[in-house]
């Protein structure tokens, strides 16, 4: 899957879960701040991303996955690794 396709799917999922329009959201904008997510909602979102893309992010990376760009990169690099 290409980067643009992953990004499109990440945005669709984000829009669905946050029930808001995220099309104008910058690639590096902080999601937690922009969408007003609390820590539990942030983790639920990451859990949903993992499920949708069938990946498992390394624990130490989770805290850094706070923008569309970081998520896209995280998904692409996790897809290269075997799913734990």
């Amino acid at each position: 899957m290409k980067g643009e396709e992953v990004e499109r799917l990440v945005r669709a999922l984000l829009g669905e879960l946050s029930r808001s329009d995220v099309s104008a959201l910058g690639r590096d904008e902080d999601l937690v701040e922009h969408l007003g997510l609390d820590s539990l909602q942030g983790l639920s979102f990451l859990a949903a991303v993992e499920k949708r893309f069938q990946v498992r992010f390394p624990d130490e990376l989770l805290a850094a996955l706070r923008s569309v760009g970081a998520l896209v990169e995280g998904i692409q690099s996790a897809r290269k690794e075997p799913v734990a």
Binding site: S20, D38, L40
Partner: peptide, 11 residues
């Protein structure tokens, strides 16, 4: 409301 309900860190 469009956004999720406001909650504390523990929901």
């Amino acid at each position: 409301l469009a956004a999720p309900l406001p909650r504390t860190a523990l929901g």
